[in-house]
Amino acid sequence: MTTLPIESQKTSQIRFTLNGEETDVCFAPYKTLLEVLREDLGHTGTKHGCELGECGACAVLLDGKPVLSCLVLAVDCSGRQVLTVEGLGEDGNLHPLQDAFADLGAAQCGYCTPAILVTAKALLDQNPHPSRDQIREAISGNLCRCTGYLQIFEAVEAAVLKIAAQKSTVT
């Protein structure tokens, strides 16, 4: 049996919206969204964790909802909206969540942080003023080994205030 060179395995092609930009990508059809993001598109902000859907490190937003990209086949994403941590900030500015996480020490090793950021964004998009318990619930699928979560909750709460303050200065 001969092994095909990697390039010729790229027999699937999709067009989807990645962080607000129309993106075309060719990839081997067996690949997960996580692998295509990291290996074919070079977006390494999304992290490779357990590959079993247990740790939550690979979460991205698919049509605005958090999904575990290690369990999503890339061929399923044709025409859909994908948001990764790279697309959180706008015009070179950090998203208020990123700002709050950095300010309040909500990351230690940082491996779970990109996924928690996008998961928290999905929560705030749906519910701009979540309670502590709703934040707990929302990020319960993201394991963090370092922080003990408490400073993550506080950072999300701080981001809520930052977003509200931004909105009031705009209007």
């Binding site: 357990c50 079993l52 934040i135 979560y149 408490l150």
Partner: peptide
Amino acid sequence: PSILEYKSPTSLDMPEV
């Protein structure tokens, strides 16, 4: 050899400190 069986506390299990 997986965190399916080796459970760690989640955000729901963490008490106030």
